[in-house]
Design a binder for these strands. Structure first.
Lengths: 150, 150
DNA sequence: GTGATTGCAAACCTTTTGCACGCCA
DNA sequence: TGGCGTGCAAAAGGTTTGCAATCAC
């Protein structure tokens, strides 16, 4: 079962590479697989560590650049932070983000209403949309309890 | 008219400072005013230049730190970029963002449907939300025409 | 007076760039 | 074989931190 899912993903990956004129290298394969197995919002460094479990000699730069490349073709998503290192979103399902300004954690949440909201025609007509996401910012439960400035 | 609006804002600012135990310094006043007059998504450097028109000796650090402080108390909003410098949102009206992955520009757009979409109860109950915004990513009209990888 | 804030400078970290070598197509 | 991709290294750029002097309360 898992194997069959994996081979489906492999085929999808191969297709993506072909469509975007990217070569299929062992490094990219490894990074792609690590992306499938990762959870949450890892940094490039997190991903690099994960990939190195099976590919010890891969360089950080390759991981970093590959993740950026993947984000450009829609295989992953760059999550915006508050100035820290980039984070990559590994959750392929539709979901939305709540950012805590205090502890900087990012919480996923789901909302069918938000998923289904239409993109305004003026934008949709002119642009090629790769992702749509609601971003909430504020203080999480813990941080608002500790807040001094509020 | 403009003056009366200005004094309203001043009162609001004063109140915000009091509520958050922030001292009212000339620098913060100047930055706050520049924020009201700014448009789009300026960087800290943009803001610093603007503030220096009337406050030539202010340091970049002060502007930078103050903008971060202001974002923490909801006076402005930090816009997430794709790795470039932080940008601050000066548009106080509800609006949403489209990011072009190609040219990195950020386009504002409005959508009443998106404004009015409710925050899921599980989040709203536990967190203090400061802002809500839909983020679209993709390639703008110009960039999708020039895209090589797609 | 006291603690927050400012300004200057250095340190830190992430991202970007350059280049030679190696590998995929 | 021709390029693209990788790895290493250095540079660039933005952000954060430390500290002494100053200012608001």
């Amino acid at each position: 079962m898992k194997l069959s899912l994996r081979s489906e993903w492999f085929a999808a990956f191969k297709e993506k590479c072909r469509a975007h004129h990217l070569k299929m290298t062992p490094q990219r394969m490894a990074i792609y697989q690590a992306l499938l197995e990762a959870e949450g919002h890892p940094t490039a460094e997190d991903m690099c560590n994960a990939v190195r479990d099976e590919f010890p000699n891969i360089s950080f730069d390759t991981v970093y650049r590959t993740l950026v490349t993947f984000s450009e073709i829609g295989l992953t998503d760059i999550v915006a932070g508050h100035g820290g290192p980039r984070r990559f979103d590994t959750n392929p399902d539709n979901h939305h983000h709540f950012y805590c300004i205090g502890c900087r954690r990012i919480f996923d949440f789901e909302s069918e209403a938000m998923d289904q909201i239409p993109i305004p025609a003026e934008i949709d007509r002119k642009c090629r949309i790769l992702s749509k996401r609601m971003i909430l910012k504020g203080y999480c439960h813990k941080c608002s309890a500790q807040q001094k400035k509020f």
